[in-house]
Structures are given as C-alpha cells and as structure tokens.
Design a protein around this nucleic acid. Structure first.
Lengths: 236, 236
DNA sequence: TAGATTGTTAATCGATTAACAATC
DNA sequence: TAGATTGTTAATCGATTAACAATC
C-alpha cells in the first residue's frame, strides 16, 4: 500500500530495525497523533523507575487498547521483545527520535494577548524539545515590552527574527481577523509549520502544515453530546 | 446502518426535515467536529450580508470540499434547495440548534494559572453560548481572589457550585498531577462533559465525555512533519 | 520446555470522495 | 424549459480491532 521512496530515514542507529517500515516511512496520521501520548506515558513509567513494560500496561497508561498500541509501534520498527515487553528507556528514545525531539525546535508566538502570554509562560513546551525564542505583536504600543527573557517584536520584524533565530514553527494567537495575514507573512518568511489558536480557517500552500486548536469548537462538541444526554431524559 | 431508536429528537420545528435522519440521530463524530466550523463560516457570511450560499462557497469558507459538506449537512436534514443553495440564516439556526447552542452552557474552570486565567478572559466563549460562571483553584492562598466578576473558589466548593450554578461543563487547566483528582470530583458532582488542558490521560466513566487539548502534543505533531521535510533535503 | 507477549494478518468499521439522479 | 445545485449512492480509502503465529 505504502509506496517505498528509496533510501529515506535519518542516519542509521544501531537497532533491530524493520528496514522496510523505516525506509518506507509515511506513518499514518492517526498514529503520529498518538506518539506524543506514548512518549509521555513512557516518561511517566521511567520516572517511577519502571524499566520494562508490556503493550497492555503501556496502552492502559496511554488510554488506548493494546492492539492499537502494538500496531502503532509496528510502524516505527520492532522495538519490543516477545514474551517480555518493551524496554521503557529504549522505546522512549526511539519515539522521541521518530518525532524529531532529539533536536530543539524554535518557536515564535505571534499575538501576545491573554492566550499568547499564557503560552509564552507555559513550562510544558520547553521541557519537551521546544523553545520559544521570539514574541511578536501587531500592536505597536506593545512592541518593546519585556516578557521574561524576551522582548516583544513588531510584525515587520518577523522575516529577520525567523532567519536569525532559525525559527521553524509559528504559533498564532492573534484575534481571528489578523490570523490570515500573519500566516501569509510566516509562509513568506519560510515557516512551514503553524499552530493556529485563532478562530480562523487559514489558507496556506500545500507544503505548509497547519494544526488548529479551537477552544470554542471543543466546547461546542461537548455541548452537542451534553444536549443529547439530557434530551434522552427530557424527551417530549 | 444506523439503528432507529424510535421517537428521538427535541420538539419538532417546522422545517423540511428528513424525519429519518432526525429521528435516527447519531451523527458521525467526524461530522459533529465540523459543525462548529460550518457555524462560524455561516456567521461570517451573514455578517457580510450574504443571504444564500452554495455548498461550494460554504465549503470553501470552512476549508473542506463540497462533497464532505453536503454529506455532513445531510445528517441533519434537508436544509438546502436544489439549484439554489442554502439559506444562510436558516442553516445557521439549524446547526446551532443541532449542537445545542440555543441554550447557554455553564462552565467552571479549575486551575487558575496562566492558562486558566487566559481562558477566563477569553471572549470567544461567551459570544458562542458558553458562560464561565465559576473559577476554582487548588491553592488556598488563591481562594477569594477576584477575576473580573468572579471570585476564585476552593476545590471543596465544587459540588455546591455545580449544583447551585447548574454547571454542566468543567474545564481543567491544572498541572498534570492534579487533573485526575479534579476529574474525579467533577464526575462525583455530576458533571459529564470535561475539557482537559492538563497533560494527563483522564480515566472517567463511559458516560462522561472528555475532550483533550494538548499544546505540546500539537507541537510534537508539527515537529514530526517538519523533520520529515528537512530530512528529505538533508538526506544522508 | 512452557508461558508470555510481540508483530502481523485479515476482518471490520467509519470517513471520504466522486458521480449523478432528483429537483428547484 | 435549461441550468444549477442539492441529497444520496456506491466506491474507495484509512483506521481500528481481534486473533494468532512467531518467538523470546
């Protein structure tokens, strides 16, 4: 099904690697979305001093079933041992490498309102291979304001900041109306990964990856289910 | 495929309703997740004074293709007119009703740190049928602190707050370590819809709906794709 | 060796898409 | 009526799951 694309993959790491799975790449989207969850579960197990874990145990910690977990991991290679389970530290490293967390990713946040400020202070990023290296806001009166180690820059500074600080990910936390223009500027400056918190559908070229986090959409989905529950009782 | 469950659905609204689709209910998850996006697109069109819209136009505004949009809308009923398109205001109302936005949903935020504070100030909720009616924090020294019209309560106050303020949705923005306990308390107090921002897999009963928003997971997914792109160039 | 658990296969399920008959 | 566009069908695609042979 998967089209082999010749010699792909990063430098070979000594490991019992299913050459095929590695070479072919193209891990399913649904699997990619779960790898960070597995990573976190493994880190939690490691913190508790656990060295080996079965797919059953790991799956339970990640909130999925074990068949799905094994299937997911099989796309990365054969990192388990039959009859035994997975070496926690080893698997953790393999997943981190697959995601690309062996390097640091540099992030700019555009839009330093309530949410942008919260994101800039959020510790969870830093600890996981991401570094916020620049803050930008469209309001000229905010430019120059200090936030911890960083100073808010102007939107016009974006191209320079991105080049000089080798930024590869842009986080948009502006009001909806400004989001598309910011995205355009990011793309123009060469950024191909965007995390969008603005309530706006962005249009970007095909090679740009956009993830959207929409707070009120999430609440609306909950509301739909909540309504269904109460309707079942309040039936006319 | 869908099992008809007898007379379901809220009070009949005069409308050209496909009784079957309405009665059967059980709209696919993927469709439910897109309804808020359509709703927003319709609102934007209405604001621009547009009264009628084709599936093509609407789909483009929502960032999907028109086949998917029509299929999605077909689960709600037949609200369009062949040869013409959809009446923007009418469709907007039907989707809002389907999601349950004709009523106000009352929300409590637990964990008033950077993110919780940002969420409490975020205007996007209020305008879309959600009202944050209570703030709670686990740190006793924060209890009593005023945030706009609200005062931070203690975690022990949760049961009373939920009952008295008729809260149906809980938003968890605590540190990861506290999230499960907070979820347990919410569930105990009868909340069956949770939006979880903590980096923790929650375990809850089957009838409780949990949506998870995980900021560093999103960045990790971007990193995976970003890595793949640069690898294609930096090939060994 | 016997017991345990992975990695993989194959079946199933749900979501997407193209195409077109129905109908305004 | 002719043109436009929906609502639906059927094909395709991708994701999930159960089951078990491989193997530690």
């Amino acid at each position: 099904m998967r089209t082999p694309t010749g010699p792909a993959g990063s430098g070979d790491i000594s490991a019992p690697v299913a050459a095929d799975a590695r070479g072919a790449r193209g891990i399913p989207d649904a699997t990619v979305a779960r790898l960070p969850v597995y990573l976190r579960a493994l880190t939690a197990l490691a913190d508790r001093g656990i060295e080996t874990s079965s797919s059953q145990e790991l799956a339970s910690a990640a909130g999925v079933n074990s068949a799905k977990l094994r299937k997911d991991l099989s796309y990365l290679g054969s990192y388990g041992t039959r009859g035994v389970g997975y070496d926690v530290e080893y698997l953790r490293y393999q997943i981190a490498r697959e995601i690309g967390l062996t390097q640091d990713w540099r992030v700019v946040i555009i839009g330093i309102g309530n949410l942008g400020t919260a994101l800039s202070k959020y510790g969870g990023f830093t600890s996981r291979g991401f570094r916020i290296v620049a803050l930008v806001d469209g309001d000229p009166s905010r430019v120059g304001e200090r936030h911890g180690e960083l100073t808010i820059g102007a939107v016009d500074d974006l191209p320079d900041l991105i080049r000089e600080l080798r930024i590869s990910i842009g986080v948009i936390s502006t009001p909806g109306g400004a989001a598309q223009e910011v995205a355009d500027r990011l793309v123009k400056a060469g950024v191909t990964s965007i995390l969008n918190f603005a309530p706006t559908v962005l249009s970007v070229p095909d090679d740009v990856e956009v993830r959207k986090v929409d707070l009120s959409t999430e609440l609306q989905i909950l509301a739909y289910h909540e309504q269904r529950k109460t309707q079942a009782v309040t039936q006319l």
